[in-house]
């Protein structure tokens, strides 16, 4: 039960929790949070699994770095569009999602 394997499992649980929230909640901001945490979970698995019982591997770490930057770009874009949508419609959910 090395450190890498442990954190990879934590990553898997994080993904599951985030996916569950993504499906249940329709509030757009909460979904952005869920998306970010799911991304972190995937990155944990990427590095943890690659380094499990092997030497530290710079390649997955570089990939995760790129992933974090891409995630922040996507989150920023989502936030900007959401705030513009909120300004115009005053609502925090998309139309069909409401009960």
């Amino acid at each position: 039960m090395t450190t890498d394997f442990w954190f990879a499992c934590i990553g898997a649980v994080l993904i599951a929790m985030a996916l569950f929230t993504f499906i249940r909640h329709t509030h757009l901001l909460r979904r952005i949070l869920a998306f970010n945490i799911m991304g972190s979970g995937v990155f944990l698995i990427l590095v943890g699994l690659a380094q499990h019982q092997r030497q530290t591997d710079p390649v997955p770490q570089a990939l995760v770095l790129t992933g974090i930057v891409v995630a922040v770009a996507a989150t920023a874009l989502a936030l900007i569009i959401f705030r513009r949508f909120y300004q115009l419609s005053g609502r925090t959910e998309l139309d069909e999602d409401q009960q």
Partner: peptide, 20 residues
């Protein structure tokens, strides 16, 4: 955007497993 991001993450998870 939300659908595509969810899809990308699922794809990335698959890539992570394959690389592992």
């Amino acid at each position: 955007l939300y659908a595509a991001l969810l899809g990308s993450l699922a794809y990335l998870l698959g890539v992570a497993l394959l690389y592992g």
